[in-house]
């Protein structure tokens, strides 16, 4: 069976962590991912860029709205995701607006952290 692990951390704390703690954490992540791959359980994983680089798209009835920042509606829950390749943010926003989910909820657009 497939499961999604969603990793939530305090961004500000992560960004202001001392160098040593941060590199220790990076080492721990790498080891964890390695272990998961070795076990055969790993299918995919990605680190995301922070919420300051997120954009949220809603498109009810064709009235597009694009807001800076991550999703923030308490009445909505994460229902799915698409990992896409786009030339730039504008291209990604274009796909977000087309997602049928945009008409009924919100699509948060988050760039993936490239190593």
């Amino acid at each position: 069976m497939q499961y999604l692990l969603l990793i939530y951390t305090n961004e500000k704390a992560m960004l202001s962590a001392p160098k040593e703690a941060a590199s220790q954490m990076m080492g721990a992540y790498a080891a964890y991912t390695e272990a998961m791959k070795n076990s055969g359980a790993w299918l995919a994983s990605n680190r995301l860029r922070p919420t300051t680089e997120a954009t949220t798209v809603r498109n009810p009835d064709g009235r597009k709205s694009v807001l800076n920042g991550p999703f923030a509606e308490t009445k909505e829950q994460l229902a799915g995701f698409y990992l896409i390749e786009a030339p730039d943010l504008d291209g990604a926003l274009s796909w977000a607006a087309r997602c049928p989910g945009a008409a009924h909820g919100s699509i948060e657009v988050r760039p993936v952290w490239t190593v």
């Binding site: 954009t55 597009k64 709205s65 694009v66 807001l67 800076n68 943010l89 504008d90 926003l93 607006a97």
Partner: peptide
């Protein structure tokens, strides 16, 4: 900028 961004599907900050 936010209203314009929404209309043209561009992030407001951008």
């Amino acid at each position: 900028a936010a209203a314009i961004g929404s209309a043209f599907l561009v992030a407001p900050a951008t």
